[in-house]
Computed example of a mutant assay.
Amino acid sequence: MKDDKIKRISDEEVEQLYAFTRKHFVEYYDLQTELVDHLANAIEEKWQQQPDLSFDDALKQEFKKFGVFGFMDVVEKRQLALTKKYRKLLWTYFREYFKLPKILLTIALTVLVAKSIQHIHAVIAPVLLFSILIFSLFRFFVLNHRYRRKVKQTGYRWMLEEIIFRCGSIPVFIFIPYQVIECVYDKEYSAVGQWILAAGVVLFAIYQYIILYVIINRAEVHLKQTYPEYKVLKQ
């Protein structure tokens, strides 16, 4: 009978906690949910010791424990963890191109590019790189538009989903082609150098393909594994 007298967080108060996290710059639903669960449990524990403590006062006391930066440290740690998860996924898919049967495709493409450089002109390399760059940038902006539209329709933002769809690879887009082109025009490449250049072009193409197609196409699977509630709320 004693447990029946313990105050519990109401549905209305849960909504207030969600609003509180949004007010303090937590934009992602997955992180909001974790913080709401944490705050709700902490408040109920306080009520066991201080039943007359108001909801607002209990919330203020608990929020003070997060320090002067509030939830910012929590958001940053989660972002670092999920970025690490994303990179692990990227590396997992990238390694598949060094195993049968995909390694045969990788070798064939490298041979094709190398022969083009040898028998046509070294300018083939920057042309290919710029073609990949332009196509990748187009795909990148299409994905960002699709993501923004989805967020507007659903009202939910998930941190891992944002990392996947925003890719974070624009610096790579720009830096790699620039460096390769600089090398092509500054040096007379040996036969070995031409093969290395060809391999670089192919690996760059594979890298962009994995970021912009493979992971995107499998994003929902990874999101459901990370967030069990994603399947229910994704619509």
Rank of each mutant, 00 (worst) to 15 (best):
V142C: 04
G168M: 10
L39F: 10
D11W: 08
D186T: 15
L203D: 08
Y230M: 00
E161R: 06
K88D: 07
F165T: 07
H119Q: 12
L112P: 03
Y29F: 12
V14G: 01
I210D: 07
F98V: 06
L89V: 04
G70H: 09
F55R: 09
F138T: 01
V113Y: 08
L160I: 05
F204D: 11
K84W: 06
D52V: 01
A114W: 11
I176L: 15
V232T: 14
R22M: 07
E27G: 00
K231N: 09
Y213A: 14
K64I: 13
P126I: 11
L59D: 04
L100V: 11
E13Y: 01
H24E: 05
L35P: 05
K2A: 06
L133W: 13
C183Y: 13
F25N: 14
Q50N: 15
D56M: 09
K115A: 08
A191F: 14
R149F: 08
R148N: 11
P228H: 01
W47D: 00
I211T: 11
A81H: 05
I124E: 01
L59H: 00
L223W: 10
Q50G: 00
Q235H: 12
Y156V: 01
K64L: 14
L90T: 11
I120V: 15
T21R: 02
Y28S: 03
V172P: 03
A199K: 04
L212F: 15
G193I: 06
L100D: 03
I174N: 02
L223M: 13
D56F: 05
K7P: 01
L233N: 12
K224P: 03
F63D: 04
L80W: 02
A205W: 10
V142D: 05
Y97S: 12
V74L: 00
V113K: 09
F66I: 06
T21V: 02
D52K: 13
K88V: 13
L109N: 10
I6D: 02
P171C: 02
Q194F: 00
I210H: 09
K64R: 10
G70V: 07
R218C: 05
W47V: 03
V127S: 10
F71T: 02
F138E: 00
L104C: 10
L212R: 13
V14N: 11
K65N: 11
A219S: 15
L53V: 07
A198H: 06
K2H: 12
E12H: 05
E162D: 15
D186N: 15
D4F: 09
L39W: 01
K5H: 04
L59W: 03
L104S: 07
V68L: 12
N144P: 00
K224S: 09
D52R: 07
A198M: 04
E12Q: 10
T226I: 12
A40K: 04
T106S: 15
S169Y: 14
F63S: 07
T110A: 11
P101C: 13
Y209C: 09
D37G: 03
T154K: 03
